[in-house]
Design a protein around this nucleic acid. Sequence first.
DNA 1: GATGAATGAGTCTTCATTCAT
DNA 2: AATGAATGAAGACTCATTCAT
Lengths: 205, 205, 205, 205
Amino acid sequence: MNSVEEKLSPKVEALYEAVMELLLEGKEVRKMKVSEITERAGIGKGTAYEYFESREELLIRALEYQQKVWAKNIQEQLLCHNEFMEKVNCLFDMMDNIMEKVKKEAQEELCNIFFLSPIFRREKECEVTKCLYHIVEEAKRGGALKEEFPDEYIVLALSGKIFSYVSFCAAVRDGKQSVCTPGQIRVYLLDSFRMEFLAERKEDK
Amino acid sequence: MNSVEEKLSPKVEALYEAVMELLLEGKEVRKMKVSEITERAGIGKGTAYEYFESREELLIRALEYQQKVWAKNIQEQLLCHNEFMEKVNCLFDMMDNIMEKVKKEAQEELCNIFFLSPIFRREKECEVTKCLYHIVEEAKRGGALKEEFPDEYIVLALSGKIFSYVSFCAAVRDGKQSVCTPGQIRVYLLDSFRMEFLAERKEDK
Amino acid sequence: MNSVEEKLSPKVEALYEAVMELLLEGKEVRKMKVSEITERAGIGKGTAYEYFESREELLIRALEYQQKVWAKNIQEQLLCHNEFMEKVNCLFDMMDNIMEKVKKEAQEELCNIFFLSPIFRREKECEVTKCLYHIVEEAKRGGALKEEFPDEYIVLALSGKIFSYVSFCAAVRDGKQSVCTPGQIRVYLLDSFRMEFLAERKEDK
Amino acid sequence: MNSVEEKLSPKVEALYEAVMELLLEGKEVRKMKVSEITERAGIGKGTAYEYFESREELLIRALEYQQKVWAKNIQEQLLCHNEFMEKVNCLFDMMDNIMEKVKKEAQEELCNIFFLSPIFRREKECEVTKCLYHIVEEAKRGGALKEEFPDEYIVLALSGKIFSYVSFCAAVRDGKQSVCTPGQIRVYLLDSFRMEFLAERKEDK
DNA sequence: GATGAATGAGTCTTCATTCAT
DNA sequence: AATGAATGAAGACTCATTCAT
């Protein structure tokens, strides 16, 4: 029912995978050559043009698709948790997992593509942002979150903290000298979120 | 005394300005041609190569320089304010000013270059981040900020909020439907920062 | 069985031919542009780079190939003669033929490439020099040449005389005032060679 | 009285010297940049154009001049010897001396310029060739050489032998595997010349 | 459908030459 | 006279896209 489930043509799938492989290996998207991608995908160069109008379109579709795949994974993972803060915690865990798999050089590129670009080009509503809205709305209905803040601000704050965390981790991995460990920063960020947004009746839980 | 004050060769200055002009007009840095830059600068193509090894170096130097110029402006502006939260407020104002001058298409690029890249490549410590550290340390010494948080986390939280604000504004300008106005978001973000980090004895002031 | 026989890709062949055409028309190899060569070959500029890493490689391969072709022709021609001095005579004839086909401006270039360079870069043993060694060894075995001289010196002397002849002819064609005709010079050179190297029992043959 | 004696402008002299230095260091003449030459000469780039129309002219004049200088040296050296074969021997010695001073990479270039080019462009009669004519004529007048050969052929043969010797030495220095030593080749070449051209009455001398 | 050889527009970069100082 | 900053024509090379097979 979701476009992610739709079977992709095997060639298209191979192309999407090739783009992601190269990305995770630290290749900048703008520097990916069509020949590299098709070679990696194990298909002929011309074949890419059977499925896409241009290199540009191929890249955009590949990244779009990957976002949907990740959003779907995130949704599934979040289903494993009932409590709101557990879900938030789980989000941080997933970020850790993704960033660990990725070459240092790819981290910035990845954040650009999956954090920044969706933020700026809202028209193509970011799939991951939708997840955030979803759990925020749910938590509000469940009374876990304070009523006074609009969802929009809560989501903005949450994604801001996630972004802060990810960028801090990336900088540390990149050799930056830091006073705090990523773990400490994570505790600070989660505590801060809890203090600001969690409904008081948390205590009776 | 600062390298920003050093008189640049007029040709170099023209080149730097040309890069910034193009950037503010929404041209992606990676797509800027040497010919475009030199044409805009009003000099011959070869002249760029009298001062820079390559297109790459020209672009890097131009962006580096611009960051220093901006950091210097920020420092000067911040001197006009005594109280910490006034300085923070001033930072938000300056972000508004910069982003207003910029074409829609340039906003993302600008954030990439002046927010994200410095975050990821810490070795070349971001000039703007240094300003943040500076005012945080000063505020701590003055007793305006809670002692319990390390400077590193405070700076991270502050830059996270600034980034959230900027990206929200950009999205709104870009036509995104939103419940809140940028002004409201700004209030939320500043309040949140105040609640989390400001020392209690604020009241007796 | 020889690499010259191997069918070249038609594009490569066209490129090699184009280089030779330009060379024979008097164009200096170092001044040949890729665009000129491909245009002459009737193919696209990019195509040259499908087959060669660089302009440099294209030129080197083209000249290498041409040398092999000529060496092969020379070998074949030499098979038509049994007696050693007839073969030497034939070599002079072939030089005449080649140089006649060539524009005045190309003669020096041609000698540089096919005489001098191989002399200096012996590692890539000159194909034509190999022919000389071959007929000298054969003649020695057949008793036509004196035993007292090493093959190396005989070949050196022979190629020296050929070179003297060719350069003399070139100078005359170029308008140099000369006392002797090329024909007379040729006689002198061949007589000299005969006197120095031919075995005495020549007469009883 | 000779143009070599005429005092050159110090700038021109510096330029000529710079060209020779670069040449002897193995720099190909066609790859010498005006900036390299003027830098080496210790003068401004524009200054070269005060004295020469173009880079081309500068290079041609520099090489011409150098040939004259060498021809003059050769003439002077030859004056130290009375007997013809001593002079020839001396020529070989001088070639050895020159080639020894020169970087391996420069040897081919040098031979091209000072042997081949003069051969092909006779109009600008080679200074060194003039020396050869001079000693041949002198030796003939003195009865040291056979009358039967025209001077032209004798000079051609002599220069051919010198060229053979030089190229052989260069190849050996360049690592070529050889049966003979340069010394042996030299003996063969000189003996050959002696046998072919020296008048019989040598013995009674 | 699939291919990959062929293409050539588009770029960076070099360097001989000029000319204002 | 001497300079060297400025120039821009020229040329090598890349790579997205096409199209005949």
